[in-house]
Write a protein that binds this DNA or RNA. Structure first.
Length: 713
DNA sequence: ATCTAACCTGTTTTT
DNA sequence: CAGGTTAGAT
């Protein structure tokens, strides 16, 4: 296959020889194994450009990845390079792609084409409901929580194994429940079918079933998408690998790009071994390795290479930096979590003063609650930040309330939504709604049945009014956007009641949701979109220049000039849940590797020496084993003891204010003893309730004198 | 006796 | 924010 004239782009000039080779392998299966920061997505995008330039129809190109963010990034860069033609290229996450295919073809499975996609919460709630209905909770002591049920279910389906298999790995204490869980999941499958619902796993598996059982559909799809490319292949699981195999069966024009060292999604069935199996799935695969790193400099790279060198199974790969210069990563051992937060904040302020854009700074952590303390401090200093991976807009109670209203309009016997909406009425709870619901499912017009429901309870009248308002709005037959606005006005009194402190903010969010909804005509499609691709806060609020706080999982594929990785102590990172099995610990190490490779210029490791535990006490922590694994000399240790009294951040916090005496006699300079933290000195009286105290052992804390027991010394 | 509302605590990671 | 628990309301 000769290369035609490269009239538009000089590929050779913009790519190194390995990338060039990958880009120019236009036909047949290709596996690109590439390290962090080596230009993986770039390679993929250039191949799209190359194909189009070759005369390939853009509509026959399909780009797939696992995460929304990676998909978004990939398509954005494609449109930058290729221009308007890139809009004809199909692509997105596996889930959204399967959804669009199922809309067209799911009738062969006896599903209506307007099925709804469940989000995680729905799945958990339905499982919980069914478990209760089947009486499993009463029968079985220590029945797993519904979140665990959902995880077991999803793993079972993603790995294509039975319950016992899943329970044996990871839920060993529950193996006796295997038959019971099979029955529960059976009931769940039936429930979904009855209500025309699919969950995330159904999207993939149902589409796979169709491809497998309907050769004419498989043929049509395979001919339509003549070039399939998968980014972040290490994140795919067996089901996704088979989907690709099935869809490419007429042509084998598949390029998979991935890094086995960055596989961090095994909890949902992704397996880095998948990448090893690719050549088996596609005989004759050409394997290309990318080992040049464009993101960072050699000292950082030496350190990250050392982190991943401790992994037990991996492709041999040693990244070499293209950039020169640079400084070793720094490790700061903070006194406690408060000092950790103060250190990070003071460094952030410093960088911003030096002219670093806040959006070029990120703080990464294992689990989203690790950043609580830091968030408080950032708020106090007025530093703008966005948090990724934590609470999503969708998870706010008010958003869920409004969506429940919408669902009732669309389907009055949606049990979860009925429960959610009707319990908003004071005095009406779970049991009451249950009785109403039973009356609803017996008749043709469920909402009317509610209006006519007979009871002496005091909630009767408010319920009737609510239902009348819902019926009235339903009759108007409004567009989706107006419908949501109308529902918001019905919901508003309950909203102000439920959230007296911050309802204006929540109302604002609801209005934004109505605006987003304006882009959809079909309400079912809107609900699916919200489940599959929830609008994230950053886009919604358009906060431009803010520091990024992120879980490591949500940081994958992104990069910043300055990166802090915090809470590198045992018990936090690696996560205690991952200590039991070797494979889990290996994954935690890869996670650490992903975090450390996000930095372009400056990389900080931070660990507190004392760790807050639940209940309010502190215990001595041990620095994370992953830090100890790194050979000494590959990072610098920072923090002589005097630092904490010299940094600007610390100064501002501890400089005594003009003496102000709190209502209870506490004043600056007073020596006090705290039940848990021991002796300390009051440095600031904030108001009648709160004082700042510099404890002799654990450093500064804000203490509420109404809650904590303080005695004067 | 039955149900609701208020309180307390403990949180992995994603589609 | 949700699950479990419990005090208090009906």
């Amino acid at each position: 296959m000769g290369i035609k004239d490269l009239s538009q782009i000089d590929f050779n000039e913009h790519l190194n020889p390995e990338q060039f080779e990958a880009v120019n392998t236009l036909y047949g299966p290709v596996l690109v194994i590439a390290g962090a920061g080596s230009g993986k997505t770039r390679t993929l995008v250039y191949r799209v450009a190359r194909l189009i330039e070759e005369g390939v129809d853009p509509e026959s190109i399909l780009l797939l990845t696992f995460t929304r963010k990676a998909a978004h990034e990939m398509l954005k860069r494609a449109s930058e390079l290729v221009g308007p033609k890139s809009h004809l290229v199909s692509g997105g996450t596996f889930h959204s792609f399967c959804y669009s295919q199922l809309r067209t073809y799911c009738r062969v499975l006896d599903y209506p084409s307007n099925f709804t996609v469940l989000d995680r919460r729905d799945i958990e709630d339905i499982l919980g409901l069914l478990a209760e209905e089947l009486g499993l909770k009463k029968e079985t002591a220590r029945f797993p929580k519904k979140s665990a049920l959902a995880s077991i279910y999803s793993k079972k389906r993603n790995c294509m194994k039975d319950c016992l298999w899943v329970l044996k790995r990871g839920y060993a204490h529950l193996t006796h429940l295997a038959p019971i869980l099979e029955a529960l999941f059976d009931a769940y499958q039936k429930y979904k079918r009855r209500h025309a619902l699919m969950d995330y796993d159904d999207l993939l598996i149902n589409w796979k079933t169709i491809l497998k059982n309907y050769p004419e559909i498989q043929e049509a799809v395979s001919r339509r998408f003549n070039f399939i490319m998968v980014d972040e292949y290490q994140d795919t699981n067996r089901v996704q690998a088979e989907l690709v195999r099935l869809m490419a069966y007429t042509h084998d024009n598949v390029m998979a790009v991935g890094d086995d060292a960055q596989s961090i999604y095994s909890f949902r069935g992704a397996n880095f071994k998948n990448i090893l199996e690719f050549p088996e799935l596609f005989p004759g695969t050409r394997i290309i390795k990318l080992e040049k790193n464009y993101r960072t400099h050699q000292p950082n790279l030496d350190c990250t290479n050392a982190i991943i060198a401790n992994a037990q199974e991996k492709f041999a790969k040693r990244l070499v930096a293209v950039r020169s210069g640079g400084r070793k990563p720094l490790f700061y051992e903070a006194l406690d979590e408060n000092d950790q937060a103060e250190f990070v904040v003071s460094r952030i302020k410093d960088f911003i003063l030096k002219g670093v854009e806040p959006s070029e700074i990120a703080v990464l952590f294992r689990a989203s609650f690790h950043s609580f303390q830091l968030e408080g401090l950032l708020n106090r200093y007025g530093i703008k930040y966005v948090k990724r991976g934590g609470l999503k807009l969708l998870e706010g109670a008010h958003i869920k309330d409004l969506l429940a209203f919408l669902r009732i309009i669309l389907n009055p016997v949606d049990r979860l939504s009925v429960l959610r909406v009707f319990t908003l009425i004071p005095g009406l709870g779970e049991k009451g709604v249950q009785r109403i619901y039973e009356a609803m499912i017996k008749v043709d017009d469920p909402l009317k049945a509610v209006a006519e429901f007979k009871t002496k309870a005091k909630w009767h009248q408010p319920l009737k009014e609510l239902v009348h308002r819902l019926l009235a709005i339903k009759e108007k037959d409004l567009g989706l956007s107006d419908l949501l606005k109308g529902l918001t006005s019905i919901y508003e009194p309950y909203l102000t009641d439920r959230f007296p402190d911050d309802y204006p903010r929540r109302l604002q969010e609801l209005n934004e949701l109505s605006l987003i909804a304006g882009a959809f005509e079909d309400p079912g499609e809107f609900l699916t979109e919200v489940a599959l691709d929830p609008p994230d806060e950053e886009e919604t609020y358009g906060k431009g220049d803010a520091v990024c706080l992120s879980t490591i999982h949500s940081a994958k594929g992104l990069e910043w000039k300055v990166v802090f990785i915090i809470s590198l102590v045992e018990g936090r990172f690696p996560s205690p849940m991952a200590l039991e099995r070797d494979e889990d610990l290996e994954e935690e190490r890869r996670l650490f590797y992903v975090a450390a490779t996000r930095a372009k210029d400056v990389l900080y490791f931070v660990a507190p020496r004392l760790v807050n535990v639940s209940g309010g006490g502190v215990v001595p922590g041990k620095r994370s084993r992953f830090l100890d694994e790194i050979p000494p000399g590959l990072f610098e240790i920072w923090g002589n003891k005097s630092r904490r009294f010299n940094t600007p951040g610390k100064q501002e916090l501890t400089t005594p204010e003009p003496v102000k005496v709190g209502g209870n006699g506490f004043r600056v300079g007073l020596r006090v003893r705290h039940q848990v933290f021991g002796p300390g000195t009051i440095t600031k009286v904030i108001d009648n309730e709160k004082v700042a105290i510099d404890f002799d052992v654990v450093g500064s804390k804000i203490i509420n004198t109404q809650v904590a027991k303080l005695s004067k010394i």
